[in-house]
């Protein structure tokens, strides 16, 4: 909470202590991943772990990129899918969320419960019909099954944005309406600018999902040149040949770092940006 009164030294000390306790728990997986990435194979997976490799194997990153397959090609594919997915998700779910949050129409709340219900269907039982559908459209083997659905407003994002849209005071819409704004105008000029943090959250989540999604590309892509980074990670896991843990972790680090950097910068803008402009309240 951004409380108004400045914190006393004691309060600060308590908060820092609590936060630092958490850091130990949340940083461990990351440190372990990076340290494994820098080890020779023989030293990986020794438990309890040796945190410092006997020899720093910086070459693992390069080897991992080579063994994964065409790394830059995978990166390009992943970025294309992420870009289209994020664009589609933000646009379509903002529209739909507005329809559920800011316009009172008959039956709205009942239909909204259907939105919620769609998230409860266990995925395995609808996987086959959905696959068959994309197959009928001749979309298997293309990126389309991975991004086109994002343009059709997924329930999670609609729900999330609706919750935020509903906190925007109704008077703002009314004022715009009196100024002659259409419903579209209110959406575009009032609600969207005020919801930047929430839109960023939705965009970030979708990006992370598409970036790390493994199942979708696994099922739909049938050409190695179309593979994504998350799918490329699988090249290090093998049933009988052994897993190259150090390369797997090096590749994982390469894949995780961009998202971590992205998160670092976006969280600043969606948490701090809005507080300083003070657009609300």
């Amino acid at each position: 909470m951004s409380f108004v009164r400045p914190l006393t030294l004691w309060q600060k000390a308590i908060i820092y202590t609590l936060l630092l306790l958490g850091v130990a728990a949340f940083l461990t997986p990351f440190l372990w991943m990076v340290s494994t990435a820098l080890k020779p194979l023989r030293e990986t997976m020794s438990f309890p772990p040796k945190w410092i490799p006997s020899e720093w194997q910086w070459g693992n990153f390069h080897r991992a990129m080579i063994e994964m397959g065409p790394f830059w090609r995978y990166l390009g594919n992943t970025l294309i899918i992420c870009f289209l997915s994020v664009a589609g998700t933000v646009m379509s779910s903002a529209l739909a969320a507005y329809g559920f949050a800011r316009i009172r129409w008959r039956g709205r709340d009942t239909v909204f419960l259907i939105v919620l219900a769609t998230m409860m269907i266990p995925f395995p039982v609808i996987m086959v019909p959905i696959y068959t559908l994309f197959r009928e459209l001749s979309w298997t083997g293309t990126f389309r099954p991975l991004w086109v659905p994002c343009f059709l407003a997924g329930a999670f994002n609609v729900f999330l944005l609706r919750q935020f849209f509903m906190t925007i005071p109704q008077e703002l819409s009314e004022a715009a309406r009196i100024d002659g704004c259409s419903e579209w105008g209110i959406f575009w000029r009032v609600v969207l600018p005020l919801s930047r943090p929430a839109l960023l959250v939705v965009a970030l989540f979708q990006f992370m999902f598409s970036w790390n999604d493994f199942l979708g590309p696994l099922i739909y892509l049938t050409d190695q040149q179309d593979y994504t980074l998350a799918l490329g990670l699988q090249s290090f896991q093998s049933k009988s040949g052994g897993t190259s843990w150090n390369l797997l972790m090096a590749a994982s680090t390469l894949i995780a770092v961009p998202v971590i950097v992205l998160f670092f910068f976006t969280q600043k803008s969606f948490v701090e940006g809005i507080a300083t402009t003070g657009s609300k309240g």
Binding site: L95, A96, F100, I103, W105, G107, V111, P129, I130, A153
Partner: peptide, 22 residues
């Protein structure tokens, strides 16, 4: 009602194709 349905139309399409049918 018309405006509401227009705004949620992407969701309706997605619902029918990706949820209701499966």
């Amino acid at each position: 009602l018309r405006n509401g349905l227009l705004f949620i139309s992407p969701w309706i399409l997605g619902f029918v194709v990706l949820n209701l049918y499966p």
